[in-house]
Simulated scan of single mutants.
Amino acid sequence: MTLKSLILVPFLATPALAGSLEPTPVEPAPVAPLAPVASPVTGDWTGPSVGAQLGYGSVDTDGAGDDSEDGMVYGLRAFYDHDFGNWVAGAGVQYDATDIDLGDAGDLDGIAKVGGRVGYDLGRTMVYGTGGYAHATTDGGSLDAGSSGGYYVGAGVETFVSDNVTLNGEVNYNEFSDFDDDDLEVGATTATVGINYRF
Rank of each mutant, 00 (worst) to 15 (best):
M1Y: 08
L3Y: 10
L3K: 13
K4I: 11
S5F: 05
I7G: 02
P10W: 12
L12A: 15
A13F: 06
A13G: 14
A16F: 15
A16M: 14
A16C: 11
T24C: 06
P25S: 07
V26A: 11
V26F: 08
A32K: 14
L34Q: 15
L34I: 10
A35E: 13
A35C: 00
V37H: 00
A38W: 00
A38H: 08
S39E: 15
P40S: 07
V41W: 00
G43M: 08
T46C: 11
T46Y: 11
G47R: 04
G47N: 02
P48Q: 06
P48F: 15
P48M: 13
A52L: 14
G55N: 11
Y56Q: 14
V59A: 14
D60R: 13
D62V: 01
G63C: 05
A64D: 14
G65L: 01
G65E: 03
M72D: 05
Y74H: 05
Y74Q: 07
L76Y: 12
L76D: 01
R77E: 13
Y80R: 09
Y80N: 10
D83M: 10
G85P: 09
G85H: 10
N86K: 12
A89K: 02
G90C: 09
G90P: 02
G92H: 08
D96T: 05
D96V: 07
A97F: 15
I100Y: 01
L102Y: 02
L102K: 06
D104N: 12
D104V: 03
A105W: 02
G106H: 01
I111P: 00
I111L: 08
A112I: 03
A112N: 04
A112Q: 04
K113V: 04
K113C: 09
K113N: 13
V114N: 03
R117Q: 12
V118P: 00
V118C: 03
V118S: 01
V118M: 09
Y120E: 05
Y120C: 06
Y120T: 07
Y120D: 03
D121M: 06
D121K: 08
D121A: 11
D121I: 11
L122C: 02
G123C: 08
G123I: 13
T125K: 08
T125P: 05
V127W: 13
Y128W: 13
G132P: 09
Y133E: 07
Y133A: 14
H135G: 03
T138L: 12
G140R: 10
S142I: 04
S142V: 11
S142H: 02
A145P: 03
G146R: 11
S147L: 10
S148V: 09
G149A: 12
G150M: 05
G150S: 11
V153C: 03
A155F: 14
G156M: 10
V157Q: 02
E158L: 02
E158M: 12
T159L: 05
T159Q: 06
V161N: 11
D163T: 07
N164M: 02
V165F: 11
L167K: 05
G169M: 06
V171L: 15
N174Q: 14
N174M: 02
E175N: 14
D180T: 08
D181W: 06
D181C: 09
D182R: 14
D183L: 13
L184W: 02
L184H: 02
L184M: 07
E185W: 00
V186H: 04
G187K: 12
T189F: 12
T189D: 03
T189N: 10
T190N: 10
A191G: 14
T192E: 04
V193D: 03
G194V: 00
Y197F: 15
Y197H: 10
Y197L: 11
R198L: 04
